[in-house]
Simulated scan of single mutants.
Amino acid sequence: MKPKMLGRNLSDPHHAADRACAGLNTEVFFPDTITEAAEAVEICVQCPLLTRCAEWAARAGVTDGVFASVWVPGLGASTQDKNTARARLALVAATGLPYVEPSQEVA
């Protein structure tokens, strides 16, 4: 089965065999809080498809979960929090670098 295409032939990276999350329990990527998202973020940081995943998530308008090292808050989140997550996905897509919370940066 071919992966679904989105936008400019941007296929859903969740069907790619070389993704870091392949074979893992998907529940890890749908945490209730940003604190619970740490495990998924660590997996994403190591993923060779980080940029592709960020591009896909931004275009697909994901509403909750961890994508490309960015926690996207769920339905109860404020508009500001959702817009912040979208901006972070755009940053990851543009730079190819994982998003790291400022409190997690290494000096």
Rank of each mutant, 00 (worst) to 15 (best):
I34K: 08
W71G: 01
T35V: 12
A22W: 11
A68P: 07
L89H: 12
T79K: 13
A87D: 14
A57D: 08
P48A: 15
G96I: 06
S69R: 01
V92P: 05
A58R: 12
G65K: 05
A87W: 12
A60E: 14
E101K: 13
W71F: 15
T51S: 12
A60T: 08
A85Y: 03
A93G: 13
R86W: 06
C21K: 00
G76M: 09
R19D: 01
V28I: 15
P98H: 13
V72K: 02
I34P: 02
G61E: 04
L50W: 03
A107R: 11
R19E: 02
E27C: 06
G96W: 12
S103F: 14
V70W: 10
V62L: 08
T84Q: 11
P73Y: 00
R86N: 13
T79R: 11
K82L: 12
L89S: 12
A60R: 15
P73E: 01
T79I: 08
T63N: 14
L24Q: 10
A40H: 01
D64N: 12
L24S: 04
V106Q: 11
C47N: 00
A107W: 10
A54E: 01
G76P: 08
T51G: 07
A37N: 08
P48V: 10
R86K: 11
D32E: 10
Q80A: 15
K82M: 09
E36D: 11
S69Y: 03
A37I: 02
I34D: 05
V70G: 06
L89N: 09
E39F: 05
E39W: 03
S78Q: 06
D81E: 14
C47H: 00
T35A: 14
A38I: 05
G76V: 05
A40T: 01
T33M: 04
P73T: 00
V62E: 13
R52D: 13
V72N: 04
D81K: 06
P98D: 11
T63G: 15
A107V: 13
C53R: 02
D18K: 02
A107N: 14
A60F: 15
G23Q: 09
R19L: 01
A22H: 10
G74E: 01
P31A: 03
A90D: 12
F30V: 05
T33E: 08
E36A: 14
A94M: 08
D81I: 03
V45M: 05
V41K: 13
F30M: 05
L75V: 05
F29Q: 11
P73D: 01
S78R: 11
